[in-house]
Structure formats: C-alpha cells, structure tokens
Design a protein around this nucleic acid. Sequence first.
DNA 1: AATTATTTTTAGGTTTGTCTAAATTATTAT
DNA 2: ATAATAATTTAGACAAACCTAAAAATAATT
Lengths: 219, 219
Amino acid sequence: MIRFSIAEENYLKTIYHLQNASGIVATNDLAAALHTAPASVTDMLKKLSKKGLVSYKAYYGCTLTEAGEEGAVSIVRRHRLWEYFLSQKLGFSWEEVHEVAEELEHISNEKLIDKLDAFLGFPRTDPHGDPIPDAKGKIIQTKQVSLATLSEKQVAIVTQIGNQSPEVLEMLDEKNISIGSRIQVIKKYAFDESMEVRTDNKHQSYLTKELSQNIFIKN
Amino acid sequence: MIRFSIAEENYLKTIYHLQNASGIVATNDLAAALHTAPASVTDMLKKLSKKGLVSYKAYYGCTLTEAGEEGAVSIVRRHRLWEYFLSQKLGFSWEEVHEVAEELEHISNEKLIDKLDAFLGFPRTDPHGDPIPDAKGKIIQTKQVSLATLSEKQVAIVTQIGNQSPEVLEMLDEKNISIGSRIQVIKKYAFDESMEVRTDNKHQSYLTKELSQNIFIKN
DNA sequence: AATTATTTTTAGGTTTGTCTAAATTATTAT
DNA sequence: ATAATAATTTAGACAAACCTAAAAATAATT
Ligand SMILES: [Mn+2]
Ligand SMILES: [Mn+2]
Ligand SMILES: [Mn+2]
Ligand SMILES: [Mn+2]
C-alpha cells in the first residue's frame, strides 16, 4: 500500500465523490469542494497525475485511475467506519460525525481500521445510510429510491440521506426522521409535490419536494 | 484553546517528557528524540518561543512555559486515552499501541476526547501504567517504587513500566508480567542483584537488575 | 465570425518544516 | 591558558501545499 499525504487523500476522496456524482471533474468544481484556489488544484493535479493516481488533461478535467480509486475507497472506508464509531459508541449525533471523521480518516494504519471494523461488528452503512466499503474495497450500494416517488398511503423505511448538510440533518431530527424510520405518506399535494407523512404513531410532518427527494427509502 | 500544528505538538510533547526526566532540555537531546537535525530544532524553538510556549535561551536549552505545558499535557492525555482504547476495546497488545497513538493523539477535537474518556469509563492509567491526565489537565502520578528494591519473600503488584521499548515489553510478555500482575521475589542474588520471581502459581522467571528496575510496583 | 465571459493554467511568491555545511560558542582535556 | 572537541546556531536551500495576478484557452453571446 502506498502512503498518501493528508492533502493528497483529501484530493482523492473529493475527486471520487465528484466523479461519482457527475463524471469528469472540472478544476473549478474541485477547487470549490476543497476550498482552495483553482491554481492550487492545477498544481496538485499535475502531481497526482505524475504519481499515476489521476488521469489529467489540461483544460479538460480529471478522473481517478484504478490506483487513485483504490486509494479513495480506502479513505471513504475509514471515514464511514469512524462515523459509525462516533455515532454508535461515543454518542455523537449524525450531524456532528462528519466533521470529526474528516480528521480521523487520515490515520492510515491498516490494522487499526480492520480491528475497528471488527469491534463495530462489520457495519454495512454509516449513520447517514452510506455504504461502508469492506476491507477489499467492495461497496454494496443499494438502489436509491427517493421518498418523493411514493404516492399516498404507501409505506417505506428510510435507508439513506442525499444532502447531508447539518441543516438538512437537523431538520430531519426535528421531524423525527432517521435511518430506519418507517414513514407513511398521508397526503400528497399535486401542486408542488409536497407531502404530509406519518413518522410514527404520534408524529406527523410536512415535507417539501426538495426535502423528500433527499430521503432515500426501501420497502 | 489554541490550535497547534502536528509538528508543534510533537515538539511540545517531547520537550515535556525530556523535561520531566531531566530538567532543562538540550537542543541535541530534543533533536535525537524527534529524529530531526539540531538545526531544525533551533529553528522551531525560536518559533515556539515567540509563541510563548517555551522559554528558550541560545546555547543554553529550553523549558516549557505554563501555556506550553498545558498544551503538552493535553496531548499526553489524548495519547494515553487512545492507547487505552486500542488496548481495551480493539485488542492491540501493549507493545503495539504507542505507534498508533502517535497518530491519533493529533486529532484535537475536544468533544471527541471527552466522549472517548467517558466511553472508556474515565480510566486513570494507560496500558503501560502511565497516568492519564483528566480533562482539566490534572495528573495523579503514584510514587515509583521499582521491583529491584524488594527483598526475598516480598510480594507486590506491577503498576507501571519504565522503559517501554517493544523489546522490554515483549520480554515482559514472555515472562507473563503485565500491569496488575502479582509478583513474589523467590530468590535474590547479591552478586548482580538479579532475582528469581514467581508471577503466578505456575510460572517463575529470572530477572536481571536492569529489567527489575524498570518494573514499578505497589504493595 | 467576432466579441465577451468563463474556466483554466502559468508565473512568481509565501509559509511551514525540514535539510546540509559552515561558523560560532561552550566544554573538556592537555 | 591553549588547544581540541562537542554542542549549538546561522546561512542558504528545498519540497509541499498553498496564494494572487496575469495570460491563455475554451465556451457562450451577439
Ligand atoms: Mn461524512
Ligand atoms: Mn456519512
Ligand atoms: Mn505511548
Ligand atoms: Mn503509554
């Protein structure tokens, strides 16, 4: 296993996420995601390219090579395992875990991660419902069906959250919605596709289309 | 709380340990402990001095200021809590924990450390018997009495290890000695102050003076 | 097609933390 | 006290990762 610097790891991970969301990654998008100047990104892309981690063509964009993706997945694994640990063992809320995991993910001792995985009971998803890659880098991503696709009377279980900003997560907290929640659509308004849902026997909540689109479910 | 870079944290922690062992810290000693060139240490000492973390006089040596010591203790706290976690929760052996904790100690989220502390049940000593500073930075170091001071027939409990090199720790593993072990001196040889000890009902071991001096005990 | 706007790269700098080699200061031995 | 040795600092450089401002390439408008 090659060792990466913290900066390199952050680039790999961010390219990975952007690439999964929308293919070839533009320099400006990467810069925005990393909170750095585009010029700095160009510098780093050249370095990563020389190391064989990204394929980069000037004025075009970049994608991860096999080696780059392998590295990225390993960082994602660490990140999500630590998020699970923070949430399940230390009692952090799901809007707090990401920030702390951003630091913990850079500890690269492989034995540590595998022992942590075992200690946690080989969890398959993190507190936001995202899949945790296994030790070999294999990821099982379930199909993402959003709550917005349901019609009245239908029932489903929350499995994953799209937009994981603290704002969204806090809103979901208040509406009593978390991973594993059972939700029934009570009323759906044709005008703006907003909906009234029942989260448990007592609580009912009103969700905009924008919000319900970020709640992924299974039957 | 001021935030330190990883390099600064390693300097503070190392100065702290050297200072506790032998007063004013010499540039060369610090360089050796940090595996850096003495010239680099001089540079950094000037920076730390300007930040008010060490008091430094050229050609003389350095010591920590109050602020520097406060920082150092906080790093020691993190280090030892992680060592405890690695040992007790993840099943690492006591010769493995130090290396991993060297990385984990630099994660500076205060809430993380306090929650970890609570999760672990507020342990007072790490896997080598070293005291863990509490959240306020208070350290309770018990008096260090070495096994070498005991005479024949006497019994004691192992509380702490002096030299914690993997070599020593492995040797103690083989002799069935760990923190909390009950040890009885069977025979003590006047010639070289080596001793035969009983570690439990079955096992007996032979210890050189040098080794027994590194095993600290209580009655 | 020509102009304007946007994106990206290049050029030149900065900071942090390191290094080697040379100069200086302190210590030890003669 | 002088010379030799050891410890420490200064001088000058370097790599990593960032920056701003200017130039160049690409994309969007008119
Ligand atoms: Mn996250
Ligand atoms: Mn997550
Ligand atoms: Mn340690
Ligand atoms: Mn320890």
